[in-house]
């Protein structure tokens, strides 16, 4: 299990990183925290990559308060997100998610941008960002662009990021004081990928529900959201089970996942109401 990398270069800043990517002739691979990429390289699931190590670019790290939104640098580490007071106050869902992600040593190096760009449908941050309605900021050869999170995840491990682009930051709306954010998971062991996970955000403007581990991408459960907006929990559970199309694997069947999604929604609603009360 020894990686076969094509080459390595350390980017000093964002523009250097863009140059490196441009010069990699399509073999470039952005290396941030490396907690998924290096594992894949060791297993030779990814070979001959020209690694562009962006992990030292300090401008891409940190959480800032932009008034209506929070801006999270793509290189902000999981452990930093979990401990950040702005996150704890305005995006408690993300702080909650950190405690579910793998284990301490992984959280010490893994970055939120890496987690989103990797687009693992079983990971917490992609689903959380869907529930929060995040905007992603991307730097490419032609400058910066923004993508709404709903348009970002394309397929299994596939996003709308182009090969020569780098995800630089994420902005999320700050939670209002009466907003409820709940993350619930069923996992067989602490830190495992969840068999199913569900995020519920209750805002004055309506409900947002997203799921992880129920398909090839994180899923926004629009029908269930609509039912919850109507105040119909049973209808939301039924709609949710109807609108997701989970896969079966060695850990659980699609039927199990579909069933649990409904259970988690009920529990999340109960918890949110509890939080309100």
């Amino acid at each position: 299990m020894k990686a076969s990398a094509g080459g390595y270069a350390r980017a000093n800043d964002l523009s250097h990183a863009m140059e490196l990517l441009a010069s990699s002739k399509g073999m470039g691979r952005v290396l941030a925290g490396g907690q998924s990429l290096v594992a894949a390289m060791n297993m030779r699931l990814s070979t001959d990559d020209m690694l562009v190590d962006i992990s030292r670019i300090s401008e891409l790290s940190g959480v800032t308060d932009d008034g209506e939104t929070l801006r999270i640098g793509a290189l902000t580490k999981h452990v930093e997100i979990g401990a950040n007071p702005l996150i704890q106050t305005y995006a408690p869902l993300l702080a909650e998610a950190v405690s579910c992600i793998a284990h301490a040593a992984i959280r010490n190096r893994g970055t939120i941008g890496g987690a989103l760009a990797h687009a693992d449908p079983a990971a917490e941050f992609p689903a959380c960002m869907l529930a929060l309605g995040a905007t992603l900021h991307i730097c490419g050869p032609d400058g910066e662009r923004s993508v709404e999170i709903e348009d970002f995840f394309q397929d299994l491990f596939e996003t709308s990021l182009e090969e020569d682009e780098i995800l630089t930051a994420i902005t999320i709306p700050k939670a209002a004081t009466d907003e409820q954010q709940v993350l619930l998971e069923v996992a067989r062991r602490s830190g495992d990928y969840a068999l199913v996970g569900l995020c519920l955000v209750v805002r004055s403007t309506g409900h947002r529900i997203s799921l992880l581990s129920v398909g090839s991408t994180p899923v926004l459960a629009r029908n269930a959201m609509a039912q919850l907006d109507q105040g119909d929990v049973d209808g939301a559970v039924a709609a949710l089970r109807d609108e997701i199309d989970p896969t079966s694997d060695t850990q659980a069947s699609a039927s199990y996942r579909r069933h649990i999604a409904g259970i988690l929604l009920r529990r999340a609603v109960a918890q949110a109401i509890g939080d309100i009360a």
């Binding site: 067989r188 068999l195 850990q251 659980a252 039927s255 199990y256 069933h259």
Partner: peptide
């Protein structure tokens, strides 16, 4: 497994 237990309980049938 969680799934085998739910199947034994008849909660999941398909």
């Amino acid at each position: 497994t969680p799934e085998r237990i739910l199947r034994a309980l008849g909660v999941i049938e398909e």
